[in-house]
Amino acid sequence: MRDFSQDHRWLSINTATVRKQQGAEVPLSRIIDQCAERGIRAISPWRDQVAAAGLEATAHQLRAHGMALSGYCRGGFFPAADAAGLRAALDDNRRAIDEAKTLDAACLVLVVGALPGALEGTPHYTDLARARSEVFDGIAASLEYARQVGMPLAIEPLHPMQAADRACINTLEQALDICDALDANKTGALGVALDVYHVWWDPKLAQQIARAGKERLLAYHVCDWRLPTRDLLSDRGMMGDGVIELKKIRQWVEAAGFEGYAEVEIFSALDWWQRTGEDTLDTCITRHRTAV
């Protein structure tokens, strides 16, 4: 396993971690500068932040800092109430692929979606098998275009608590089954984004990480599971402040061949989003060296 204790060259920051500072939204350009000032070599920005900052302006700023993208958040949300909605989702994912390519991202992360309308409180249907079928078809269609432009797609399984509204793919095993069905030769075009917050509980985790191997492990996200958890969406913990066995999981991931960034992704409305970006990023660096 790599030694992270001496530097933070393999630290990446998902910009959700510091998109709010002291309760206020922060421009992506400022986040990039804050990371560059600390020698952080990679980020993973969100599409709405890039849209606000401008795609070309963001690409230029990243190049000026020599900064890489460990991933791009996010594509997905394939299920829809009708055929028009399914087509709109595919169109949006095509745009996301193009944006990721412009930014030279390592992969486009797919949060696949679930029951359409559930995020707004009124699902259009409750057939989870239908949603999973639409996810499969959506990934298959998007993969065809992603191959053409050379942008790997990374399916991110989400914790079962989000099966109804955000992602009906909830285990690494489910995600890898899709990968094997659509990319049987492990070409690198389709893989997974492994977020410890969503999968740490899975009794099959070690087995499925080994199954994924280097070809499927496209992104690795870290944070921690707080006790008590005050909000299931936006109360993630800083690494070392919870119960996830972070070093053990990274050992499994690296034994499987992963050699990329450990990307910190923390949604924290009650804690880290109330602090300065400097405080949060400095803590990320310290915990990357000691806890990850």
Results as ranks from 00 to 15, higher is better:
residue 1 M to I: 03
residue 4 F to G: 00
residue 5 S to A: 12
residue 7 D to R: 07
residue 8 H to C: 02
residue 20 K to A: 09
residue 26 V to I: 10
residue 33 D to A: 15
residue 34 Q to A: 13
residue 34 Q to D: 14
residue 38 R to T: 01
residue 51 A to H: 14
residue 54 G to M: 08
residue 55 L to F: 05
residue 55 L to M: 00
residue 58 T to K: 07
residue 67 M to H: 12
residue 68 A to C: 09
residue 68 A to Y: 11
residue 69 L to W: 08
residue 70 S to Y: 07
residue 77 F to S: 09
residue 78 F to A: 09
residue 79 P to G: 07
residue 86 L to Q: 15
residue 87 R to S: 14
residue 94 R to S: 04
residue 94 R to H: 14
residue 105 A to L: 11
residue 105 A to H: 13
residue 112 V to I: 11
residue 113 G to N: 01
residue 120 E to H: 12
residue 121 G to A: 04
residue 124 H to Q: 10
residue 126 T to I: 14
residue 128 L to W: 03
residue 134 E to W: 10
residue 136 F to W: 10
residue 138 G to A: 12
residue 139 I to P: 07
residue 144 E to Q: 14
residue 152 P to K: 04
residue 158 L to T: 08
residue 159 H to K: 08
residue 159 H to V: 02
residue 161 M to Y: 13
residue 168 C to I: 10
residue 179 C to I: 03
residue 181 A to G: 11
residue 182 L to Q: 12
residue 183 D to C: 14
residue 186 K to R: 15
residue 187 T to A: 06
residue 189 A to L: 03
residue 199 V to R: 00
residue 199 V to G: 00
residue 203 P to M: 02
residue 210 A to R: 08
residue 212 A to P: 05
residue 216 R to Y: 05
residue 218 L to V: 06
residue 220 Y to T: 04
residue 221 H to V: 00
residue 223 C to P: 00
residue 226 R to E: 05
residue 226 R to P: 01
residue 228 P to W: 06
residue 231 D to N: 14
residue 234 S to D: 07
residue 240 G to F: 05
residue 242 G to W: 02
residue 245 E to W: 06
residue 247 K to R: 15
residue 248 K to Y: 02
residue 255 A to Q: 13
residue 266 I to Q: 00
residue 269 A to W: 01
residue 270 L to E: 11
residue 270 L to T: 07
residue 275 R to S: 04
residue 276 T to F: 01
residue 277 G to M: 07
residue 277 G to L: 09
residue 281 L to E: 00
residue 284 C to P: 01
residue 288 H to W: 04
residue 289 R to I: 03
residue 292 V to E: 02
